[in-house]
Amino acid sequence: MSNRRPYVRSMDGWWKRDPYFIRYMAREVTAVFVALYAIVLLFGLVRLGQGEAAFNGWLQYLKTPWMLVFHLIVLAVFCYHTWSWFNIMPKTMPIIFMGGKRLQPGTITGTGLAASVVACLAVLFIVRGMS
């Protein structure tokens, strides 16, 4: 055992030191809300399997003010997730060359965001058509 006590810089609050780290943290924390939303849906599915009375109880629960507040927050977080997901996509996907030129980061992000808008509108129209 050595009595040396070398200085070790504290890592407490490291992510508050730089705006880049704060953006990283904001992006990663969205996962907590994605998990919570999936759990709400999983409860709905389990209730559906238990029969009509159980499922109606879940539907009633969705109408409570707390669940509205929860879903409004989740909606905002999901929009942020969409934006940040395609914002980092130029770094997470393999480099693509088109016509001898490297596909620009802005093009990748823009295409992804446009695809999201189209996909969301498609889902809204399909569900509206079914109801």
């Binding site: 994605v34 909606l75 999901f78 929009c79 969409t82 395609f86 996909a119 969301c120 509108l121």
Partner: peptide, 8 residues
């Protein structure tokens, strides 16, 4: 989640 999450 990025593609259809907000709509869902």
């Amino acid at each position: 989640a990025a593609l259809i999450g907000p709509a869902l």
